[in-house]
Amino acid sequence: MDNHLMNRNDQTDSLPDFDTWLRQELQHSEPYIDDDGFCEQVMASLPAPRNRRVTERRYNFLQYGAVLLSSGIVAWNFPLGAMIDQLMSQSISLYSLIAVGLLGSTIATGAGLVALKR
């Protein structure tokens, strides 16, 4: 009787813990489901791939075009002559004026590009 109980306890102790056992059994009882045309069906139903590189290049081209166009419009309407006359009358050197103008337009264009990129 005691031997029988001891054997039974030994057997119970030798069982893997329940979680491990359950995980193993659940995985063992899972059959592999053959593809059987499933993948082809999925692939046939996917939308046509877009060439992202071309799309991105077009998008960048449009961005730069928009920035250049808007800069051109601003430059066309900018009263540069009047501003130079005004500044000359205030005794500022022409070179400093050009430098300030270039710096300003570079910053504005750069900021515009960054904003568009985002």
Binding site: E30, P31, Y32, I33, D34, D35, F38, C39, V42, M43, L46, P49, R50, N51, R52
Partner: peptide, 19 residues
């Protein structure tokens, strides 16, 4: 847009997901 790459993912997970 590499659909062949996606088909590998489909093959990899189809059995598990369908089960």
């Amino acid at each position: 847009g590499d659909q062949r790459a996606y088909s590998q993912l489909v093959r990899r997970y189809q059995s598990q997901l369908r089960y």
